[in-house]
Simulated scan of single mutants.
Amino acid sequence: MAVYRFLLTPRWLGILALTLVAAAVMVWLGNWQLDRYHGRTEVNERIDAGLRMAPVPMRDALSAPSGGPGTAGPAPAEEKVWTRVTVTGRYDPTNTVLVRGRTADSKVGFEVLTPLVLSDGTAVLVDRGWIPPAPGGATAQPQVPAAPSGDVTVVGRVHETESGADAVNRRDGRLETRRIGVPRLARELPYPVYGAYLLLDEQTPAADPTFVAVPVGHANNWQNFGYVVQWWLFAVMTLVGYGWAARREARRAAGIEPRPVDRAAEPTPSTPA
């Protein structure tokens, strides 16, 4: 083992320290991606479970808003997102919200949110579905199918408010936005609003067939798992590379393997006169 004494020199100790730090960072990155994989897997499982489960009363999943008009209630607990719920109320079509720039079947159009006002005066935003724009372009306001009058029973899945909420404005008398930020939308409405919205699954009376169900995409958790494997392999390769370099240096010290020739140190041959 005397041939490996060079590992105790400052140069090789520095190389070892850098190697261990690099490997530790790569292991940490792998663990971070593993946490993201587990988190996205749980989201996908909740999405699938929401499709299969029997609906429960909405108040079993969402806390009622306690503020005044124009305020939003608390956001749902993480485990309650995608829960399938049922609730009865009356649609308020005068405050329908058009969400532009939304895609279904590779086409750009609008999602239509209509407040469902409950008997206690609070409301929940219901995403009734996707409709194409009017002729004239992707931003041309569509003809929105009328909401049923009277009591309506909705079955839908709890969807948390979207991040990066965009500005809300009125165009041709209708509220319009690009992102479904419930607290921001609540400020435009004359009643307290629940802190999440519902993706409509079923409705009594039946929903207008013009609406296309809003597609729900699963999180790409396998991409994160691939990153886990990648970073952990990099960590192993870094350690293996250090071991390979140390073994090669030891073989050179023992004379088993020749050292590389420094061409710059060789004398330049003289040119015959």
Score class of each variant (00 low, 15 high):
M1G: 14
M1K: 05
F6K: 01
F6M: 06
L7C: 05
P10I: 08
R11Y: 12
L18G: 14
T19S: 03
L20Q: 12
V25A: 13
W28M: 15
L29P: 04
G30R: 02
Q33R: 02
G39C: 01
T41P: 00
E42W: 05
E42R: 14
V43A: 01
E45F: 07
L51Q: 06
L51F: 12
A61L: 13
L62K: 02
S63R: 14
P69Q: 05
P69H: 05
P69N: 07
G70W: 11
A72V: 08
E79T: 13
V81G: 04
W82R: 03
T83L: 11
R84M: 10
G89F: 08
G89L: 07
Y91C: 08
D92W: 09
N95I: 00
T96F: 00
A104E: 05
V108F: 07
G109R: 04
L113C: 06
T114Y: 07
P115N: 09
V117W: 03
S119F: 00
S119N: 10
G121V: 12
G121N: 08
G121K: 00
V124H: 00
R128V: 09
P133N: 03
A134L: 07
P135N: 08
A138P: 00
A138N: 11
P142E: 06
Q143K: 12
P145R: 08
A146C: 04
A147L: 02
P148L: 01
P148E: 09
D151S: 13
V155T: 13
V155P: 09
E162V: 04
S163F: 02
S163V: 11
V168K: 02
G173N: 12
R178F: 11
R179N: 15
R179W: 05
G181Q: 03
L185F: 13
R187F: 12
P190E: 13
P192G: 11
P192V: 10
V193E: 04
G195D: 00
G195A: 06
L198A: 11
L199V: 10
T204E: 11
A207S: 15
A207E: 10
D208C: 06
P209A: 15
A213W: 02
H218S: 01
N220S: 13
N220F: 09
F225E: 03
W231Q: 06
A235I: 03
V236N: 01
M237W: 15
V240T: 10
G241K: 00
G241I: 05
Y242Q: 10
A245F: 10
A250V: 02
R251D: 15
R251I: 10
R252Q: 15
A253W: 04
A254C: 03
E257P: 01
D262S: 12
R263T: 11
A264V: 10
A265H: 01
E266T: 03
T268P: 02
P269F: 11
T271E: 12
